[in-house]
Design a protein around this nucleic acid. Structure first.
Length: 773
DNA sequence: ATCATGACTTAGCAATTTTTGT
DNA sequence: ACAAAAATTGCTAAGTCATGAT
């Protein structure tokens, strides 16, 4: 079944587009797992597949059809977005004749070239039809399925019809050029290439603004009295109500900041009435928000789907940009909505009102020749339109809280992001060749005559050994967190003879606690650095981040402090994964092994997560599951003893089962809940089973396995309860290590990389199983 | 030399979607 | 079939680091 579906995805959808959704909305017709399976089929885990990929990717393609043969391209609402050369590019994706024949023979000619735009407009009408239906009569799911089925049929017909037409438009053009067009990672990246110029042509549709505020006319209570606010004030009050159920609203800092900003949004009349935040009760608005949430939840799945589709249609034009003639996905095309600023940790600015961004606040960056995106809010215009091809952002604005810039970027699967990601890992690999010298350098520097050098070397020791961040200076209006260079005396405790205890808040106010035995000179230095200093004084007072990085540049070109984190994370994974080779073991064992290695890295980098609220409850549940499994095992063992003495074929085994709830169709939701609750409190019932004596040993074996599995689950859960594996996977581990390991050990890559990660790391998929970091 | 700015990567948490277990 | 749990994605805050201004 799966393989059939895989074949339904046209082969000529380029690999990266298949993953990055750049093939228009056709993806809606493919299930995601088929997309993944298809990609894997192309990329391959084994040698056989590799050849297949070579054949597919390296093959010469036949000349494309004429534009008129593909009616789908013309006259889309955003047709101006694609210039002629882009149309040509799209039309290039045509199959080789022999392949066409082969497929026709096997009856798989249906899903060939589909033009995204025609399909898109088809979707528009489909979606709007569904939306209409929802409005009028609600949606009948079965009916909807039929609709989409017939739409598919129509598409097939359409495709078949243009197969007949179409002659070559670009005969003689070298084919590799097109392939290279998107497979940037196949190219030799020439060292002399000017990498300050990021693009030559760039066009996009701008950004998507959040919907305008619609007043709900729910009051607040001031000293118990209803007060209806002006829309402007009501909006800000609603921001606060949104945080009603969080801890934030209790924090004095949050309340102080909010109250200050709230007053700026009150009319003079309102200002006179509202004297103190403590006297304001936002619960009518909060209740309104909850009611809205519930109403949304109560929609049928068909309604939800219809809404989703309509939304996707609205958003569609913002999702892609054209960069150097190639379509790329845009990452964060939505402008951040207004609301209350929530920092991490004890942020001095928490509770401030983040203002609504208007077109005038936005700078659009496009190519000189590209059409200026239409400003979507009538009566307004873009703040600025610039043509800066030395940067990769598409649009940006200044954040009203932090004063920093916010940018709209391409997605992680884009060339811009992919190339620099690859470069990051290449730089880290280069560090491998210099690391011995660098370690020698700072080891020697620990005992230098210069205080500055001793501090620098000591700091570098920690950055290398403990993977600490460099730690830039921070402002007064930011949370008080530190990294290596900004460590203060209060953050470490020295224990003779040579143990250092760290305890400080790092990035995102995540606590770093570690006890480390260090080399004697390091310990000696630290003692010296903190002598006669106050707890709030910096340990490395003679050291700056700039100075540290400048020095690193002398040891290796392009080296900076953060490279050590990448290097140490990746080299650790590489080492751990190569400690064991799997042959034909259970896939789960392999995955556990990988996760174990991943975990080591996450701990090294101090990647944490707050433990899920229900963690304790879940552990308890597992514990009782374990108890029951053990009980069952004991009963079986007991029965086995009995069976050995007795001569009967079958023995009695006691089993304790939970009574089942009696749920009838005529019960209301509440009655069902009550019944479930009642049953849950009942003691378990003892049942006696007749078990064949001959089957006892296999039952015991199964029970033992189950006990083992639960025990493993429990210890894994406990171990990983506040470790975040994702961060290192996304940012620190060279994906080629994982790809190579998967190929060596016959592990499907999608067991380790999610769809987004497969997309992001597409450039690494073809690396050889011999790859070594 | 120092500071501020700008561009880009890294980060955890919330919301949403998928999988699992009963 | 349903709820609970797990996995994934979306969001945006919070870092790093080079460069340009003072």
């Amino acid at each position: 079944m799966v393989s059939k579906k895989i074949k339904n995805i046209p082969e000529d959808v380029p690999l990266n587009q298949l993953l990055s959704h750049n093939y228009g909305d056709r993806r809606d017709s493919y299930r995601e797992d088929n997309v993944v399976a298809n990609v894997l089929d192309r990329v391959g885990n084994g040698k056989k597949n590799e050849k297949l990929v070579q054949k597919k990717i390296g093959r010469k393609r036949e000349a494309p059809q004429e534009v008129k043969a593909a009616p789908v391209i013309k006259d889309t609402p955003d047709a101006n977005f694609h210039d002629n050369s882009e149309k040509k590019k799209r039309n290039k994706r045509v199959k080789k004749e022999s392949e066409q024949q082969r497929e026709e023979e096997s009856g798989l000619k249906l899903e060939k070239e589909v033009n995204g735009n025609s399909y898109a407009s088809e979707l528009v009408s489909r979606a709007s039809a569904v939306v209409e239906k929802v409005k009028k009569e609600g949606v009948d799911i079965e009916r909807e399925k039929q609709d989409s089925a017939s739409a598919q049929g129509a598409r097939r017909k359409e495709k078949d019809s243009w197969k007949e037409v179409g002659t070559s438009e670009e005969e003689g053009e070298p084919e590799e050029e097109e392939e290279e067009d998107y497979r940037w990672w196949g190219r030799d990246n020439r060292e002399d290439e000017d990498d300050t110029i990021k693009w030559t042509t760039l066009s996009h549709n701008g950004v998507l603004f959040p919907p305008e505020y619609v007043p709900h006319n729910k009051p607040i209570l001031y000293k118990g009295k209803e007060i209806y606010l002006s829309p402007k004030a009501e909006e800000v009050a609603t921001f606060f109500a949104q945080k009603f159920a969080t801890e934030y609203v209790k924090k004095p800092q949050f309340r102080k900041n909010f109250w200050e900003d709230f007053q700026h949004h009150l009319s003079s009349d309102e200002k006179k009435k509202l004297k103190s935040l403590d006297d304001i009760d936002f619960s009518p608005i909060y209740q309104h928000l909850e009611a809205q949430k519930n109403a949304k939840k109560a929609l049928t799945s068909a309604e939800k789907k219809a809404i989703r589709e309509a939304e996707q249609e609205k958003v569609k034009k913002y999702t892609v940009a054209m960069v150097d003639g190639k379509e790329e996905k845009v990452g964060n095309f939505r402008v951040e909505p207004p609301g209350l600023f929530l920092g991490r940790g004890e942020h001095p600015l928490m509770g401030k009102v983040k203002k609504r961004i208007m077109p005038e606040d936005i700078t659009i960056n496009i190519g000189e020749d590209a059409p200026v995106p239409e400003c979507p809010i009538p009566g307004h215009q873009w703040g600025q339109v610039i043509h800066n091809n030395k940067v990769t952002w598409l649009a940006g604005w200044k954040d009203s809280i932090t004063g920093g810039y916010k940018y709209v970027w391409l997605s992680a699967g884009s060339r811009f992001k992919g190339q620099s990601d690859q470069q990051k890992y290449e730089k880290a690999r280069k560090l491998k060749n210099h690391i011995d010298d660098i370690r020698k350098d700072y080891t020697k520097g620990l005992e230098s005559d210069s205080l500055e050098e001793r501090q620098r070397s000591t700091a570098l020791y920690f950055i290398d050994r403990l993977a600490l961040r460099v730690g830039n200076e921070k402002d007064e209006d930011e949370a008080d967190t530190v990294g290596c260079c900004s460590l203060r005396v209060e953050h470490i405790t020295l224990r003779d003879p040579n143990v250092v205890e760290f305890d400080f808040l790092g990035k995102d106010s995540i606590r770093y606690v570690n006890t480390v035995t260090v080399d004697r000179p390091v310990f000696h230095n630290l003692k010296e650095f903190i002598r006669n200093k106050k707890p709030q004084d910096e340990i490395f007072d003679k050291l700056t981040v700039q100075g540290l990085n400048d020095h690193l540049k002398t040891l290796m070109p392009g080296l900076s402090a953060k490279v050590f984190r990448t290097y140490n994370a990746s080299i650790t994974l590489d080492r751990l994964l190569n400690e064991r080779r799997f042959d034909s073991e259970d896939l789960n064992n392999k995955l556990t092994f990988y996760n174990q290695a991943n975990k080591e890295v996450a701990i090294l980098c101090n990647h944490q997560r707050t433990l899920p609220v229900s963690h304790e409850q879940q552990m308890q549940r597992l514990q009782s599951k374990l108890d029951e499994a053990l009980e069952w095992l004991h009963e079986l063992e007991h029965a086995l003893k009995k069976a050995k003495h007795g001569k009967k074929d079958s023995v009695e085994v006691a089993q304790y089962v939970k009574p089942k709830a009696n749920l009838r169709n005529d019960m209301t939701q509440l009655e069902r809940e009550a019944e479930k609750k009642r049953v849950a409190e009942l003691p378990r019932e003892r049942k006696v089973l007749q078990v064949k004596a001959s089957s006892l040993s296999s039952k015991i074996e199964k029970a033992e396995q189950r006990v083992e599995k639960i025990r493993l689950d429990m210890s894994m859960k406990e171990e990983l309860k506040n470790v975040a594996l994702g961060t290192s996977k996304i940012n620190y581990l060279d994906p080629r290590i994982t790809v190579a390991w998967c190929k060596k050990n016959q592990v499907p890559i999608e067991k380790i990389f999610s769809k987004t990660l497969l997309t992001k790391f597409l450039w690494s998929m073809e690396s050889s199983e011999d790859f070594c970091f």
